[in-house]
Write a protein that binds this DNA or RNA. Structure first.
Length: 452
DNA sequence: CTGGGGATGGGGCCC
DNA sequence: GGGGCCCCATCCCCA
């Protein structure tokens, strides 16, 4: 006989124990803030903790202390609450940090929920836009003095779509709670906050708009910073707080904290929310560009096309679907990968790296330094006493020479190698390939690094 | 320390 | 809607 509520009660009991600091044998320090938890619960919930704690299984008498600096305490609180309750308090403001932290902690359930959340945000975004439209129509009917907000070329869809936009998360029962914690009224309120913060900023040009985004793009920068971190080796909080920004942007940031990081998000009655939104929209209508139809759910950026929004969202999600086959570095766009491959691995620029003179296939040679390739004129090559590279080796690591071939290579090779694979086959030697048909100048001397 | 150049990333927009 | 091109901003490294 199976008692279905047993698991729930067990988790509830564990959560109570955690809150009362009973039997907690693990301390987690996140940016100085201490969280207490049970090792076995963390072990069962996170791949990171599983690895970490399995290493110290023998030393179970001492409490484990784990320190994190790569995400904020608020984010970890959301995750810890999920571990102990099955409820994930996702909001538009915290989803980026949560997905980043969940990735770090190897918690795939949360990752899936976050991905679905982001995906559905597009629908929510659309839904809200339609909501704005209906509100606008309503306000114009009652207040003829205000111009309509949008002149949509699309048919306004029925409100039924709102409910259908909620993602299907049957696999994870906790997600229902998660979605409920991110109620539509809350999302609308976030939009209202955004509208408020944008008030008074006439978007006369896109560039100015980008500047105005300022801190709101701190979350845009998150993946980029993380990427930079690959070089510096420093882990940073995804949405690091930055002081000294313009006041309007700070307002947005504050809004994020108010609605995003509260453990128990404030739920404002829908009527009040709608009223506030109507008020905001009536004041901001003249500043809205009618042609920008898709708003990013995570920042104030708006684009005309859904495809552009999809592309933009990658800077929030950190998704980098295009890995370089040579060095494993990942890119958000294929064109960026192509540029990278051509400049770094194929010496695409016909300029001598050292003296900057123009070279051709005949007057220059290609130098390989690790995975990087660049061209040198013969004079600079002679001065630097470079070694040459046999053609077969070059062919092995750069099987394409023309742009057309390269493109066909990118297009044809669907399956991407893993980073480990690409790293394993990286040629970490320094070699030169003659392109003028001269015999290869074999030798073992290495080119001095960083020829810039 | 600083300026310049390269690499990278993001937005607009055309095809 | 995707691919691709162009442009620009930012970061990083080096002289």
């Amino acid at each position: 006989m199976e008692i279905s509520s047993h698991q729930f009660h067990l988790l509830e009991q564990l959560n109570e124990q955690r809150k009362q600091d009973l039997f907690c044998d693990c301390k987690i320090l996140v940016e100085g803030k201490v969280f207490k938890a049970h090792r076995n619960v963390l072990f069962a919930s996170s791949g990171y903790f599983k690895m970490l704690l399995s290493q110290g299984l023998k030393e179970t008498t001492q409490p484990t202390v784990v320190t994190f600096e790569v995400f904020s305490p608020e984010t970890f609180m959301v995750i810890l609450d999920f571990v102990y309750s099955g409820v994930l308090s996702l909001t538009g403001q915290n989803v980026i940090e949560v997905i980043s932290a969940a990735s770090y902690l190897q918690m795939t359930d949360i990752l899936h929920v976050c991905k679905t959340f982001i995906k559905s945000s597009l629908d929510i975004n659309e839904k809200e836009k339609d909501h704005y439209l209906s509100l606008s129509a309503k306000s114009t009917s009652t207040e003829p003095a205000h111009p309509p907000l949008y002149h949509s070329r699309r048919k306004a869809k029925s409100n039924l779509r709102c409910s259908s936009s909620v993602p299907d998360e049957k696999a994870n029962p906790a997600n229902e709670n998660a979605w409920s914690s991110c109620s539509s009224s809350q999302v609308i309120l976030q939009r209202a906050e955004t509208q408020l913060s944008k008030r008074g900023r006439k978007q006369s040009s896109v560039r100015r708009h980008r500047k105005l985004l300022g801190l709101s793009q701190s979350c845009d920068l998150a993946p980029r910073k993380a990427n930079r971190g690959e070089r510096s080796g420093a882990g940073g909080t995804a949405a690091a707080s930055q002081d000294g920004e313009e006041p309007g942007v700070d307002a947005e940031n504050d809004a994020g904290h108010e609605y995003g990081y509260n453990r128990e998000p404030e739920v404002i009655p829908k009527k009040q929310a709608v009223a506030q939104l109507e008020q905001d929209l009536s004041r901001t209508a003249e500043y809205e560009l009618p042609q920008t139809r898709f708003k990013c759910p995570f920042c104030t950026h708006a684009v005309k096309r859904r495809a552009d929004l999809k592309r933009h969202l990658r800077c929030h999600t950190g998704e980098r679907p295009y890995p370089c086959k040579e060095c494993g570095k990942r890119f958000t766009r294929l064109e960026h990968l192509r540029n990278h491959f051509q400049t770094i691995h194929q010496a695409g620029k016909l300029i001598c790296r050292k003296c900057k003179c123009q070279v051709t296939e005949l007057t220059g040679c290609v130098v390989q330094q690790g995975t990087r390739r660049y061209r040198l004129c013969h004079q600079c090559q002679g001065e630097a006493n470079f070694d040459s590279i046999p053609d077969d080796l070059d062919a092995e690591h750069s099987p394409v020479s023309s742009l057309a071939n390269k493109r066909s290579r990118w297009a044809l090779e669907g399956g991407q190698k893993s980073d480990e694979e690409t790293m394993e086959e990286e040629p970490y030697n320094l070699v030169v390939r003659r392109v003028n048909g001269d015999g290869p100048d074999r030798g073992d001397e290495k080119v001095k690094p960083n020829l810039r």
